[in-house]
Write a protein that binds this DNA or RNA. Structure first.
Lengths: 236, 236
DNA sequence: GGATCACATTGATCTAGATCAACACGAGAA
DNA sequence: TTCTCGTGTTGATCTAGATCAATGTGATCC
């Protein structure tokens, strides 16, 4: 288990990168490293906001549900991402681990105070929040106005983008082949579709030689130009 | 025309409320007051982020579109709200005035610098951004998983809430009667529906005595309990 | 008053995607 | 090997909401 920020694998990408060595020691004293098993929840929708955290390892989904069980994934979190609701008293959504994960947890009140005393840290947090807001708004267009084909194409492109950030194999570009970190039901919950519709759209893309599916988890983009066209306007 | 922050009607609600009188004088020197006619755009999707602003008067919609004209409203802005993308180089959406409006505009580079020098201001901006992120995520559940009836009911409740904030007539509660600041097409673009579906749902609610519609713009909530139920689970 | 125009409602029909229902394909476990 | 069990695919049907098409309504201008 990692016990201090010096050794932390995400210290250069997480908001902590705003801190100098002395400050890292200080924030380290406020933190607890916690392991979460796949499927376990870290935060529940409706709970008081008592903790915030940095993702160190693994992946999380952020969900909101209706009483009858309909669920929408409203965000995804990867290593170096920030979790939780600082400066607010309620969590509006549930945070669940998609894989075995590690997080670096703070009590919200400690964190809030520490942030106010360290403007550079607050600045990093603001930048992250603004970027996330842009991303979430993009998905409003997807959920409100895009067809199933457009949604699936957009999703594959976004995943290729995001996973390219994480991997070191390709610098600055997209990934042409990648492993989806989740199953069809999760994809459906991200796109506001059913599992069957997602499946049908994927096989359609495969039939048209736009993508290849070596197996259920792996995706290979064969014609990213065409995929882009489908994502933006649905042209077959 | 208002020429300085002292006289500004939103100085206590906008992010500027973080500033003391001296700082207000300083930021005032960076600002330009601009009037925008209903229908005019302030910022275009895809443009470089050159300006940011505070809404002083009126209302704006924030939209994102597909090439074939499908449009999704991804946010609404009222007096004291902040507009634009600080600390980023691209606007991801269009901002258009819904009514004749006034804004207090800053060059983005001036603003970015001023914010970094005034942590309290940055803190206000962060709080606003976090609140907006929560709101936007709530609408992802709406757009991804709610039925037409649920969407319209949720929308009416949110409007009653937001307009209660703005008006002084009711303290802390919801408004039972209010004027929608936009027409049916705009409502459809907010909810990811068509104008016809919105209209049908409204008349349905009227027939069931959940709401009354004195005219096309005004809404009176007769049974907010039932409206709440419809919004959350679609029960008639 | 009537004519025009923009917006809203209502009705008839169509369709994308949901729902219901088999079936397929591993990955373990015995 | 065979028997699960969880996950994905494929097919048949259904339906919520879109689309197409009148019709209504009310504000403004002559």
């Amino acid at each position: 288990m990692i016990n201090n920020c010096e050794q932390c694998v995400v210290k250069n990408k997480a908001i902590c990168s705003a801190l100098d060595p002395d400050e890292l020691v200080a924030i380290n004293r406020l933190s607890r490293k916690v392991s979460i098993k796949a499927g376990q929840a870290l935060i529940w929708e409706g709970d008081d906001s008592l903790i915030v955290a940095n993702v160190v390892e693994g992946a999380f989904k952020l969900t909101s549900s209706l009483e009858d069980g309909r669920e929408q994934i409203i965000g995804l979190l990867y290593p170096a991402d920030f979790v939780g609701r600082p400066f607010g008293d309620r969590n509006e959504y549930t945070v669940t681990a998609l894989a075995d994960s590690k997080v670096c947890v703070f009590s919200r009140s400690d964190f809030d105070q520490f942030v106010r005393e360290h403007p550079d840290l607050e600045h990093k947090l603001l930048q992250r929040t603004l970027t996330e807001l842009d991303r979430v708004r993009r998905s409003m267009l997807l959920l409100g106005r895009k067809t199933a084909a457009e949604r699936v194409a957009s999703f594959l492109l976004e995943m290729s983008d995001r996973l390219a950030d994480a991997s070191c194999s390709v610098v600055g570009g997209n990934l042409e082949e990648f492993a989806l970190p989740f199953g069809r039901q999760q994809v459906a919950d991200i796109l506001g579709l059913t599992i069957e519709t997602v499946s049908r759209q994927m096989t359609q893309l495969k039939k048209n030689d736009v993508i290849a599916l070596p197996d259920h988890r792996n995706v290979q983009i064969l014609d990213s130009m065409r995929l882009q066209n489908i994502a933006d306007a649905g042209a077959a």
